[in-house]
Amino acid sequence: MLTNLRKKLGTIAAAVALATSATLSPSVASAAESTTWRVQSHWPGASTSYQDSLVRLKDVLEERSDGRLKLQLFEAGALFSAQETFNAVSRGIVDMGTISPSYAQNKISLAGIASGLPFAFRNVWEAAYFHQALGFEEMLRAEAAEHNVYWATDKVYPTEMVLKRPVNSMEDFKGLKIRSSGSLQTFLTDAGAAASYIPGSELYSALDAGIVDGAHWGASQGADSMALYEVAKHHVKPALNIAGTDVFIVSQRSLDKLPEDLQQIVKQALEEQFWFRTNEYQYQERVTLANAIANKGVQVNTLPEEVQNHLTQAAMKQWDKEGERSDNTKKALSMLKEFLGELGYL
């Protein structure tokens, strides 16, 4: 009887082992399988955003997918130029990229508004609300989808000037020589300042020598990283613009190839990234500026109301030009003006 019982137990054990093996094998195989996406960044490897935004997302995706989705990162220019990255992602040559919206203006009509209309938002939360609650992000995503691209703004943040002397009147503003670039250079020139482009490598010496009176290089983190506070002690508020200047773009083909659960992990991680990085960047800005005030003799120069009103009027002319690009830009600009009107800015 004991022998028969042992035989039965042996048979049951073998059956359990076989069933367990059959049950576990697919999950083991599934866990062993992984997909690696190539990601072309527009940030150099030394950039704080490369580490804080891109490397962060890489770590989040690998952790939440249990290693089933990995990102192979390439810093700025490693595979393509920043201006070529959107097309490379659109065609599926690379799976993901980071860009500034301005690099996709020939494809995305809303890119100019996304890059930041001058003197629109005065607080970061307003730009975040416009993107996420009023539907601007959905409009951007819909345009990008026409090019087989999934669009996700990384964060919204300010661009602010530093000056060697404060602005206390319109006369002070119109006498400024400012290092600028892109649409902000046009805006500042139209508003009456003398704006010109100077490469970053020459910016400190140009400020130090008095070739320019001020500049913008991001906001407080940018100014501090470029040592501009050594020669320009006045940090200007409000921001020249606040915008979603950094964007993740994902090949829709690559996204569609992933299992459904991984697709959801990617989309959820990107959604969370916007809020995490927007708030983290705002915190980092405040800490950097507070340190500059406490230890480097920097003072905050809030522009007088007459100067702010003048800049708003000059900016609105540029807004209207941007609104003429498409039906979408016309709609977005109407949304923006209504929102700013509700806030009491227009």
Rank of each mutant, 00 (worst) to 15 (best):
G116N: 15
S49P: 09
H235F: 05
K164W: 00
R91S: 14
I178F: 01
K155A: 07
A31F: 08
L61S: 14
R38D: 03
S27P: 01
G135V: 00
Q105C: 15
W275S: 14
I265T: 15
S109T: 13
A243E: 01
K321H: 12
A194P: 01
R68N: 15
G323S: 02
G200I: 14
E338F: 04
L255S: 15
L228D: 01
E305C: 13
G297M: 11
L117C: 12
N148G: 05
A223Q: 00
L289S: 13
S81M: 14
Q72L: 05
L289Q: 08
G214I: 00
G297P: 10
V94R: 13
E272G: 07
A133N: 15
A32F: 06
Q313K: 08
S81F: 11
A227H: 11
L24E: 00
D320N: 11
S65K: 09
E338W: 11
E322M: 11
K58Q: 13
E202N: 15
R6W: 02
G175P: 04
A292H: 14
A13E: 12
T288L: 07
M226G: 01
S47R: 06
H131Y: 10
V39D: 02
H234R: 03
L270V: 04
G135Q: 01
S65W: 08
V55A: 13
K321N: 06
Y150F: 08
K107G: 10
V124D: 07
V162T: 02
S254V: 09
L255V: 09
T11P: 12
T153L: 11
S27R: 09
F86V: 03
M170Q: 05
V16W: 07
T312G: 09
R38G: 05
T302N: 09
G97A: 14
V212S: 02
I249H: 02
M316D: 09
A111K: 07
F80P: 10
L140H: 06
V39W: 10
G214C: 02
H234E: 03
Q51P: 12
S115D: 09
V162M: 11
I113W: 10
H235P: 00
S47W: 02
Y345Q: 07
L240W: 00
N301H: 13
L79M: 15
R91Y: 11
F136E: 00
Y103V: 12
V124Y: 07
T278G: 09
G222T: 03
F136K: 01
K337Q: 10
L333S: 06
F274V: 03
N4F: 02
T189S: 10
E338G: 14
A127K: 13
S254Y: 03
L176Q: 08
M226E: 01
E62S: 14
L346I: 08
R38F: 03
G341L: 01
L262I: 08
L343E: 14
R122E: 11
K233Q: 02
Y283M: 10
G323P: 01
S205R: 15
S47I: 09
R91T: 12
E33N: 13
T48W: 07
Y50R: 06
A144E: 03
A290Y: 09
P44Q: 05
F339R: 05
D52L: 13
E75Q: 10
G92A: 15
A145G: 06
